[in-house]
Simulated assay, not measured.
Amino acid sequence: MTTIALVTGANRGIGNAIAEQLAGLGTTVLVAGRDLARCSDAAAAIGPGAHPVLLDVTVQATVDTAADLVRERFGRLDILVNNAGISGRIGVTPSAADIDDVHAVFDTNVFGVIKVTNAMLPLLLRSPAGRVVNVSSSVGSMTRMSDPAHYFAALPAMASYPPAKSALNSLTVQYAKELRARGILVNAADPGACATDFTRPLGITIDRTADQGAAIAVRLATLPADGPTGRLFNDDGPIPW
């Protein structure tokens, strides 16, 4: 039985690398994103096992339509990777934050995950081994952010991206608690800073590739039945909350 996976924000960057790596394992991958033309190009580049899907995580109608498409074409979903995310304005302190910017980041990075996961959940429950992977970040680790000895302590205080990832990490735990008894494992993946369109505005040199960053998400998406759930992982293992 062919494994069916849906990856949001999969037309470029880490999401595209996740889709490509899953397809390389023989998985049928739905390349989901806000721009159907770009998703079509990305799916064509991946190969015949990849299919484009229009899905904007902030627009419920597109989420519902995508779920209907999966139901009609495949009848179930085995892997959901919630990868779509935005950074908002980097380096803006909480006291100077634009509430509209903060809301936009949470709308995509947190509320969008709830929209997509809940819409796809009936299909995941039809899978013999449902897996949900939320692409997060260790900048959401309050342990590391509050540790004076960790290099995160030198990062500027921000009101949008790190708090949104902290919220996503907490949400991961709550879904894991709810779904473990039903055979669905839910984990968060920290791909690390990779050289993608997402990080280029930072103006710093990053040697890590999207392919390298995608590996942890793929590993969590293919966990065995006795694998962990409700945790945040990077290449080196679990990350403290």
Results as ranks from 00 to 15, higher is better:
Ile4Gly: 09
Ile18Thr: 11
Ala23Cys: 00
Gly24Cys: 07
Leu25Ile: 05
Thr27Tyr: 11
Arg34Glu: 10
Asp35Arg: 11
Ala43Asn: 04
Ile46Arg: 05
Gly47Val: 08
Pro48Gly: 08
Val57Gly: 00
Thr62Pro: 00
Leu69Arg: 10
Leu69Ala: 11
Arg71Thr: 13
Arg71Ser: 15
Arg71Gln: 11
Phe74Ala: 15
Ile79Gly: 08
Leu80Phe: 04
Ala84His: 03
Ile86Met: 04
Ser95Met: 14
Asp101Glu: 14
Val105Asn: 01
Asn109Pro: 01
Ile114Leu: 08
Ile114Ser: 02
Leu123His: 00
Arg126Tyr: 01
Val135Pro: 00
Ser136Pro: 01
Gly140His: 03
Gly140Ala: 10
Asp147Trp: 05
Asp147Leu: 10
Pro148Phe: 09
Pro156Lys: 14
Ala157Asp: 12
Ala157His: 10
Tyr161Leu: 11
Lys165Val: 15
Ala167Asn: 05
Leu171Lys: 04
Val173Glu: 12
Lys177Glu: 15
Ile184Phe: 04
Ile184Met: 01
Leu185Pro: 03
Ala188Lys: 10
Ala189Val: 11
Asp190Ile: 13
Thr199Asp: 08
Gly203Arg: 08
Ala210Phe: 10
Gln212Tyr: 02
Leu220Phe: 01
Ala221Tyr: 03
Gly227Met: 13
Pro228Phe: 12
Gly230Tyr: 00
Gly230Lys: 01
Gly230Met: 05
Arg231Thr: 10
Leu232Phe: 04
Leu232Thr: 06
Gly237Gln: 08
Pro238Cys: 13
